[in-house]
Write a protein that binds this DNA or RNA. Sequence first.
DNA 1: ATTGTATAGACCATAAATGAACCACTATCT
DNA 2: AGATAGTGGTTCATTTATGGTCTATACAAT
Lengths: 221, 221
Amino acid sequence: MSTGSSNIFRQIRESIINGEFHFNERLPSERDLADQFSAARGTIRTALEQLEQANLVRKKFGSGTFVSYNSQFEQEDIAEETSPLELIEARIAIEPHIVRLVISNANNRDIRKLEDALRGVMECQYNPNHFSSADEEFHLLLAHCTQNPLIIWIYQRINDIRSHSQWSHRKNHILTPRKIAAYNQQHKSLMEAIKSRDIEGASKLMEDHLLRAKADLLGNR
Amino acid sequence: MSTGSSNIFRQIRESIINGEFHFNERLPSERDLADQFSAARGTIRTALEQLEQANLVRKKFGSGTFVSYNSQFEQEDIAEETSPLELIEARIAIEPHIVRLVISNANNRDIRKLEDALRGVMECQYNPNHFSSADEEFHLLLAHCTQNPLIIWIYQRINDIRSHSQWSHRKNHILTPRKIAAYNQQHKSLMEAIKSRDIEGASKLMEDHLLRAKADLLGNR
DNA sequence: ATTGTATAGACCATAAATGAACCACTATCT
DNA sequence: AGATAGTGGTTCATTTATGGTCTATACAAT
């Protein structure tokens, strides 16, 4: 059972798995491959169809054939390999304690800036994209209020991933006006707890807030 | 997503990451880049848009395209300006929840690897440097056991800073055999809590462990 | 003979790249 | 202050390259 096309299939598969062709890179055109393998274009096409069936490759009409195989070694970008669920788990890990540090370290000017930012979030109930970026800004500002450069830096990376995450595709499904209103209410309670210097209360509110976001994420898959 | 323009995207990205273009440096104009890559300006523009999307570059109307990539340069800065106290605060923020995730996600093989690593730490009671690096390894392994790539990545960065921190100068003063023995005892209790799947108990032990380390740090200034 | 595969060529529909022109803004020089 | 050159932002028609499809032919194995 060894036809010409399946030989070509095997050869290209090896090239992809060995990393000669990188993720998302365009393969040579069917006509070029036909030249390289001294085969007819139809033969190449059946080989490519097998590759597509094996999820190693995807074809784009009018554009080319692209590697869709993601080797473990070229996950150079942490943002690409972090799922929305994993992202929110990391936030659950760090943000409740961020709130503690905010209450310990923030001065009145910081608190005012937080309130300003929160007002900005509140105004975005009906636009998921605006809400999302205002929310990112608010949580990043919290990190800044810790005045801990390492935590600020870590949270900047988390925010990079938030804006890059696959989650953003589903944003419009998850962030209904109703959900946004709920989040805003949680933000408001959180802000009040921070202002009254209730460390454990605020931390718990942040944890609940994120657990709620996690539940929403899971419920809307 | 992936076309000829993304080849140019890749090339410029590599140039930026490899430091051929420095932070805040202006890239050649779109027209110049078009000449260099023998491509049309539109093709360059789509490549630059992808770079902007990846936060590697920002465009200034009428002025140019500037590198906004925070290379290892910025990470060096973070290591420099993060004090040992701030480092341990960040660890207090994240590690108790890491322990929770470990208990939720780790399999038996992970647990065995943790026990092996812990034995390695135990053997270092009389050498602060060895204890320190074995301890780093143990805590990093905990992060790995979460199986969350983002958390692993964050903890790797924390570990980078641990080994880079000003704290290492004072290590020999702080890490007396007596202190090391105390830490080992805490590690042992932690490990037992993990093995018995006691999520909140283990998390609390980790928090106590780090709070103790923080107190030792403050007491030895 | 039939079937399955490979070859060769032609044409189609689509997507991307091209090349040119123009606009709006910025920085610099006079 | 004004002029000027250089920059990114935008649009357009056109060209090029790509995968998708179809036909006819040749060859080998069953």
